[in-house]
Design a protein around this nucleic acid. Structure first.
Length: 829
DNA sequence: ATGGAAATACTTTTT
DNA sequence: GTATTTCCAT
């Protein structure tokens, strides 16, 4: 979808990227009618037959099953342009929904290339942005301020912590995180607190937390991410007039990444298209187009249901389905590997990507002894490709399963001097100083936003302690007003010492002054500047000699730059508009759209070679790179430990592998490390089960086995033994379980030595770790144990094995704990 | 009320 | 190993 590298020559591989023959629409309308048919036809040029069909289809709902790299964005944009060109739909009647803001921006741009300025009238946005837009327009109907706050995951966890405290629940026993994810899951299913309480198997604690949480959100005029969707659906269902307005407005609705939609989003689409409305006089249903690929569904953990795409034809009985299987991105070798890996997923609709681009280079495989060696190999190859093949750093991406894995790679890239950039990780808007600054802005825009007000009440330190805060909150509670409103009447609140009252008054004056500034028409940047100044936040950071604080100042400067930029782009935007933007950014949005590898073209400065991009496999979805490294192919790393036991989660991991492999255009590398340091201690990891699914003839193994495995297999020394990892060696391939694809029943891991049948299995797994550790107790469910601080307990569940084994232990009065056995002082009785 | 030390949990993946 | 949280001393 994203085309960071359109400028790269990819010989004969890319008919879909030929320049389009459609001239931008001029403002001279006289020729418009006459040109219409010609324009519409021109949009079909350069498309293959199924793509053409997908553009032409109209009348009934359309599902486009678009394999990776099959030109789906091209089809979508051409379809929109075609709908406009034939006059069936006007620009303002188009609603195109994507997964990320970046994808939305790209789609808008590419439609604009086809239809010109008319693109501006369309809604091209994410689910969340579209819902914010609707909710802000209809805020009165849902009982929100127009400047309502949007809480991110951290904000809602904060609020949940407050709620559990208020309910006198043990925050240890009911961690906010767990409650938050369960509430989120309920919202994804459109279950509101009342409905949940009424349902048969409701958990009392969850029900009361959920009800109170939702109440507090309402009081604070705030919504969380899931509310954006749920409350929009509720709005449309409760107010037929409003629903009708939007049904009349949107005549063509297109949803990208449909496999990632959850139930709430599914219902939202039905509401908007009017498919739920069976009345005689209903607005005619909007044209519905969904695009997706079940094999690329990697967000089930967040509530996405493949069901939505698998059952599309059942949900919309007259639906038409079109398959796009021709790939314009990768070589056949890469596609064959990806097809082979994904084909092991059970219950999948068959689909095989193909290309006429030829086989291309073999996939390069590498087994490193540890993650540093793996990183070294990656860096060395990037360097070599630069010399031999003219590959620029900007052409290369390195993927990994979890963010923590970026560290070893970064260390090596810094050492060898390769420029790189990590996408994601600790996100900009999650940094403490940014959250603090944004919290001020939110509290200014929305005086009832208690979570954010309380966050900054004593930041920077101004002598307002827990006690004063608690008294103020208690007063607010009694008066049934928000803490913000209570602050206006601090003098009436009992139990606050005179110093506390003074401090709170000072804070109140501060906020009042800032609100006046904002109300007086100051832009977001000016308000932000005033916040940083008047609160003393910036002064405090500047005064500090902690180098971390220096970088905090820089981050705040960057936020200020973002605000300034926003003011220039949206001169009419107010603080609430800015906050909306800030609340809905994602990792993937931070990937530079064009400048990564541009500029090195003819005449450009030689230095501008772009930078190597490091990111997780999840973030990589939708992107493509000429050269891709997928690292960490180890059972326990990828597939991740926590998915090994569950076939569904394992299937999702496999889809993740599929996504990773299909990002590569020309060259693909897969690597693993035999030993990887996680949580501070080195562990041995066996080869990923997914590796065995990559056909051996597609892979050029540069190194087939780790030194350790070679030794164990009876090799005669270090490094030398060609027998150890040369051709015929008993490499990674497993003969004993090649056919087992689900792997739910078997032990999650086994040592390499077990497989090659050489040395007998070592007694304590993980003992090969350089750091000899205390023996890890072998536990079984039901065992009784003692813990140095929790006392006696009983094992109720086990996860993983070896050094990373985690036991869930019930400790009577101390509740149930998840313990990483390696670190926990537990003894078997 | 605040700051520092010590304990402790943590690692999927994110709109 | 790191970031956050908790506890204790001031």
């Amino acid at each position: 979808m994203t085309t960071l590298f359109d400028d790269l020559p990819l010989r004969g591989l890319d008919p879909a990227r030929l320049p389009t023959a459609v001239p931008p629409r001029t403002d001279d309308d006289s020729g418009w009618q006459a040109d219409r048919a010609a324009r519409a036809d021109a949009l079909l040029e350069g498309l293959n037959p199924p793509q053409r069909e997908a553009v032409l289809h109209h009348g009934s709902p359309l599902l486009i099953v678009a394999g990776a790299g099959s030109g789906k964005t091209r089809v979508l944009t051409h379809r929109i342009a075609h709908q406009l060109a034939t006059g069936r739909v006007r620009p303002s009647e188009v609603l195109a929904i994507t997964f990320t803001n970046k994808a939305a921006a790209e789609m808008r741009e590419r439609v604009a290339d086809l239809v010109g300025s008319a693109a501006r009238a369309m809604w091209v946005s994410t689910f969340h942005s579209a819902c914010v837009r609707i909710l802000r327009r209809e805020h009165a109907a849902v009982g929100l301020r127009s400047s309502f706050s949007i809480y991110d995951a951290a904000d809602s966890q904060r609020l949940i912590t407050l709620v559990t405290r208020e309910l006198d629940l043990d925050t240890k026993k009911f961690p906010a995180k767990g409650l938050a994810s369960r509430i989120s899951a309920l919202k994804d299913e459109l279950v509101d607190p009342e409905a949940y309480a009424r349902s048969g198997d409701a958990d009392d604690v969850l029900a009361s937390v959920y009800a109170r949480y939702q109440d507090r959100l309402r009081q604070a005029s705030a919504v969380d991410f899931d509310d954006l969707i749920m409350r929009t659906v509720q709005l449309l269902q409760a107010h037929p007039g409003v629903a009708e307005h939007y049904r009349r407005r949107f005549r063509s609705i297109l949803v990208d990444e449909y496999q990632d939609t959850n139930h709430a989003q599914y219902v939202l689409v039905r509401e908007l298209t009017g498919h739920g409305d069976v009345r005689e006089d209903a607005v005619p249903r909007a044209e519905l187009t969904v695009v997706g690929d079940a094999d690329q569904s990697i967000y089930a953990f967040r509530g996405a249901t493949i069901r939505n795409i698998l059952e599309f034809e059942a949900d919309y009985p007259d639906a038409r389905t079109i398959l796009l299987e021709q790939n314009y991105r990768s070589t056949q070798t890469i596609l064959s590997a990806a097809n082979a890996v994904i084909s092991h997923n059970p219950g999948r609709k068959p689909k095989r990507l193909w290309t006429d681009a030829g086989a291309g280079a073999k996939i390069v495989g590498y087994v490193a002894d540890n993650e540093h060696e793996e990183a070294r190999f990656v860096a060395q190859e990037i360097d070599r490709l630069g010399d031999d093949d003219g590959v620029r750093p900007g052409d290369v991406a390195v993927f990994y399963r979890t963010n923590a894995q970026s560290r070893a790679l970064e260390e090596v890239l810094i050492r060898v001097g390769l420029p790189y950039k990590v996408v994601g990780g600790t996100r900009f808007y999650e940094r403490r100083e940014i959250k603090d600054a944004v919290a001020y802005l939110r509290a200014i825009a929305n005086p009832d936003d208690d979570v954010n007000l309380r966050r900054v009440l004593n930041v920077p330190k101004r002598g307002i302690g827990d006690r004063s805060e608690a008294m103020l909150a208690a007063f607010a509670e009694r008066e049934r007003i928000s803490v913000g409103a209570a602050l206006e009447r601090v003098e009436e609140a009992p139990g606050i010492g005179s110093r506390g009252v003074t401090q709170l008054q000072g804070f109140r004056e501060l906020m009042t002054g800032l609100r006046e500034l904002a109300a007086g028409g100051a832009g977001p940047a000016e308000v932000l500047g005033a916040v940083l100044d008047r609160t003393g936040y910036l002064a405090e950071l500047r005064a500090s000699d902690d180098p971390q604080d220096a970088s905090r100042v820089e981050n705040l400067a960057e936020l200020h730059a973002v605000a300034t930029e926003f003011e220039q782009a949206e001169p009419d935007g107010d603080l609430a508009d800015f906050l909306e933007r800030v609340s809905l950014v994602a990792d993937a949005d931070q990937i530079p759209a064009e400048d990564v590898a541009d500029g090195a073209a003819e005449g450009g400065p030689r230095e501008d070679q772009g930078v190597v991009t490091l990111m997780t496999l999840h973030t990589a979805k939708g992107l493509e790179f000429p050269v891709v490294f997928v690292t960490g192919w180890e059972d326990g790393t990828f597939p991740h430990m926590r998915s090994l036991a569950d076939p569904d989660q394992l299937a999702e991991e496999r889809r993740l592998a599929y996504v990773g492999l299909t990002r590569a255009r020309r060259r693909l590398y897969i690597s693993r490390a035999a030993v990887r340091t996680a949580w501070g201690a080195p562990n041995e990891f066996p080869a990923s089960r997914f590796l065995a699914d990559v056909p051996d003839e597609l892979v050029d193994w540069r190194r087939r086995e780790s030194s350790m495995a070679a030794l164990r297999a009876g090799g005669s020394g270090w490094g030398g033994g060609a027998s150890a990892w040369g051709r015929g060696g008993g490499g990674y391939r497993r003969d004993d379980d090649g056919g087992s694809v689900i792997g739910s029943g078997r032990p999650p891991r086994r040592a390499d030595a077990d497989r090659s049948g050489g040395t007998p299995p070592r007694t304590a797994r993980g003992s090969s770790s350089p750091k000899a550790s205390a023996p890890i107790p072998t536990l079984a469910v039901g065992d009784r144990v003692t813990h140095d601080s929790y006392g006696m307990g009983r094992v109720v569940a086990l996860e993983g094995s070896g050094p990373n084994a985690v036991a869930k232990v019930e400790f009577g009065t101390h509740g149930t704990k998840r313990l990483l056995l390696r670190y926990s002082p537990v003894t078997k009785l």
